[in-house]
Design a protein around this nucleic acid. Sequence first.
RNA 1: GGUCCGUUCGUCUAGCCAGGUCAGGACGCCAGGUUUUCAUCCUGGUAACACGGGUUCAAAUCCCGUACGGACUACCA
Length: 522
Amino acid sequence: MAFFYLCRSKQKQMSNREIRVRFAPSPTGPLHIGGVRTALYNYLFAKKNGGKFILRIEDTDQTRFVSGAEEYIIEAFGWCGIRFDEGVTKGGKYGPYKQSERKAMYSEYAERLVASGHAYYAFDTAEELTTQRKNFEAEKKTFTYNAAERKHLKNSLVFSKSETQKLLQSGTPFVVRFKMPEDHVVRMHDLIRGEVIVNSNVLDDKVLFKSDGMPTYHLANVVDDHLMKISHVIRGEEWLPSLPLHVLLYEAFGWDAPQFAHLPLLLKPDGKGKLSKRDGDRLGFPVFPLQWTDPKTGETSSGYRESGYFPDAFVNMLALLGWNPGDEREVFSLEEMAEAFSIDRVGKSGSRFDPEKAKWFNHQYMQKKSNKELAAQFLPLIEKEGVMADMDYVEKVVGLVKERAHFVHELWEQSGFFFKAPASFDPKAVKKRWKQASYDQMMELKELLSGVGDFSSENTETVVKKWIEEKEYGMGAVMNAFRLLMVGALKGPHLFDIIALLGQEETLRRLEIGLFELGKKE
RNA sequence: GGUCCGUUCGUCUAGCCAGGUCAGGACGCCAGGUUUUCAUCCUGGUAACACGGGUUCAAAUCCCGUACGGACUACCA
């Protein structure tokens, strides 16, 4: 009965509360694909449930600030097509959305916790604590600022009220620490992992408010999520160990906690550990959505955008790393994914990224794109090769060759011969296909094609094949030699489609050039 | 070391919560087919329940243990 009631009340609470989720990166560098995926799941969850998706910048650590990082993050989401409903640059009624701009309010919340006995002032310096840790380590023990140790340290729990007041008023640097309750069983519910239970004795008195006047992540995150009315916190698994602290903080404030979901990590493909920013390019594929140049070292890491991935293919691939729709669909748009998304179809274990599958996705998307769109992206590459091409012509070329390419940048390799007559002939192909009879046959073919009025693919194919049959030439021998003269190699689409596009004049010209270049083989 | 989390083909995964299917799909790889060539494409194949106990008529599925992997263990997020 009690269980039933619990379920019902939870249901009710869920349906009444507006769904609001946030992605809260700290601007310490470029966002890697794991971060993008976390944001994507938040976005999908919000869209699916008709909620709001918020971008909050967590810049409470001024020492780790990296210039350009915030702009990078915003640009990356723009490229991915992930749109925010509220946040930095976007605004909203719960702003400001950058924690450094909210600085003034956090101390009040820290004080509130001290006043209610849930937190206390600590005056130990960083150096003193380091020494403590070393001493403990020497005895093979681990120093923890907890109930057992705090009574031997410098804090308002051991000092008298007046002593504490004096220290505070004299401007002695201090931090505010959470007073972790003793022997308290913390029960938490995670949307992905279910029940997680931990005893508070293994937890420590985390710093909530730093001596530089800024809150730590733990305080800022709880205060802001509450103030911004966040309903679900969907974040990386690396936060799971601090979940008890966060839950206890909500309790201490007397606030309703949001629901939590801790996402499995994206793993390094070469085995060990979670993917990190430092993996840069050493893995042989980008770990960042956009190219990034470190402002300090000048070191550049490649991005998916610059590597030629389509944003929709990239996002699609990423979404399927840890989530699946429950049916066998793999290729779908952001809208379709949002429609299909649900937290309980997110897996529990970490995933390794597969570069081969990423390429396959891009190929799939490439086939779905219109020839016009691809041609527009291809045009600059053609111009780089020194060719001025007509858009209609490029579109037709793209239509013929796109199925054999994974990326737009592979298009030139597949279709260069449509724009430039072969400058050389692949020696292997010449050896294999330019035989004794080839010269005379191509001579005849030239004659034949110069007399054709309708140069459509269908018609030239009929005419040429009929001629080959009548003369009893080998189909393979003639066609390959012909291809060699048109393309310069034994590759490319249907040959009659090629010459139809090239046109009669160019076809004859290439035959002539080829005959001259390769000559008669004795 | 301590705490927590995890473990199905090489990779991404379905199946697990409500035990009973030859453990399904995709990428990759291999073979065959289509093609005048290369690629695409089509067909087929390859390959997995970490291990050990227990519960049960029956376990990938429930329970316990072991191993392995991972995260966390800062006045970083």
